[in-house]
């Protein structure tokens, strides 16, 4: 194995994406480090406003300009720092090396072109056509299990159901055999049984070397699908590790509280654990640890200084008073 193969597929270092608004600077992503290996599904969880979608947009260098700017950091895909690429070079990366699936397929698909046209477009643009384009399109649609692919490619997006549209998006995404797939809440708008089908598809797709960064707010999906998980809060990754570690012995109180506040099917009826308060104002995040105003065990140290990431075995966390493998937060 050469050094290049051992290196992670994607390495993100100290990523900072800020938005300069009239009201002030929003540090949407504020010093984020993580890696995605080949054939690995990494879950990125967080609540709205935690910055998880902006991590994806930063990887593709699609942060809305001019308000948004990647202030610092490195995004290294197989040895190349994507932030150093020209816009022209970046265009060949998007869709070919790094593909993305968004939450709402209806607003990502063009209503006036057939599904076949749209899957074929990605192949044409990236010059990946060897032989018959139609065959390649049918192949991509079959890979995502769209029944009757050879006739359905002549249909328009509105003739597909929500679940099937999301499969079309997946077909477009994988048509050029990308190395990395960014999935931003792809099943949030789907019903549970359709979501289960889509998650099954994700598992199949990673069978090759495809690395997947799966953004979601649903801890259940992370536990069912992912190998590792990154927990984001107010622009930072507060805990990361293997799903087993993070779900069974979370070190950060936010992770623990989040897990405890989710109702579990089949559990006895009880009062749910509730995280008090609201997520912080992105314009004026609290000093020190950003979770301290809502944390039951915060003390002066937490209020004064931001903890640096600490690593312990397979987990990395940002907390002055990490929990000791117990899945409960006591005030």
């Amino acid at each position: 194995m050469t050094a290049a193969e051992r290196a992670p597929l994607l390495q993100v270092r100290d990523l900072r994406t800020y938005f300069y608004t009239r009201a002030g600077v929003v540090k949407a992503v504020d010093g984020v480090d993580f890696a995605v290996q080949r054939g690995e599904i990494v879950g990125l969880v967080g609540e709205s406003g935690s910055g998880k979608s902006n991590v994806c947009l930063s990887i593709l260098n699609l942060v809305p300009k001019p308000a948004g700017r990647i202030v610092s950091g490195e995004i290294v895909l197989e040895g190349t720092n994507l932030l150093g690429l020209s816009e022209r070079a970046m265009r060949t990366v998007r869709g070919r090396d790094v593909a993305m699936i968004l939450q709402d397929p209806l607003s990502s698909l063009n209503p006036v072109f057939t599904v076949g046209d749209q899957v074929g477009e990605a192949l044409r643009v990236h010059g990946r056509v060897s032989g018959d384009l139609r065959e390649r399109v049918i192949g991509a649609l079959q890979k995502v299990h769209i029944p009757g692919a050879s006739t359905r490619l002549r249909d328009y997006p509105h003739q597909f159901s929500g679940g099937m549209r999301q499969r079309v998006m997946a077909a477009i995404a994988i048509s050029c055999a990308p190395k990395l797939l960014l999935a931003d809440e792809p099943t949030t708008a789907l019903d549970v049984t359709i979501q289960a089908q889509f998650l099954q598809l994700m598992r199949e797709l990673r069978e090759g070397d495809l690395g997947i960064l799966y953004v979601t707010h649903d801890l259940g999906v992370v536990a069912q699908l992912c190998d590792r998980v990154l927990v984001m809060y107010a622009g930072q990754i507060v805990e990361s590790g293997t799903v087993e570690q993070v779900f069974h012995a979370p070190r950060h109180p936010y992770t623990a509280a989040l897990i405890s506040s989710v109702p579990v099917l089949g559990a006895k009826r009880r009062r749910l654990y509730q995280i008090e308060g609201q997520p912080p104002n992105p314009l004026a995040p609290p000093a020190g640890c950003r979770f301290h105003p809502r944390c039951p065990q915060a003390d002066d140290q937490c209020r004064a200084a931001m903890p640096e990431p600490a690593t312990d075995g397979n987990v990395t966390y940002r907390c002055w008073h990490p929990l000791n493998g117990r899945l409960s937060v006591t005030p």
Binding site: V192, Q195, G220, V221, A223, Q224, L225, F247, H248, L265
Partner: peptide
């Protein structure tokens, strides 16, 4: 089909 938030109980 409900995703259970526990990696030890995968569907």
């Amino acid at each position: 089909a409900v995703p259970v938030p526990d990696p030890a109980r995968r569907a």
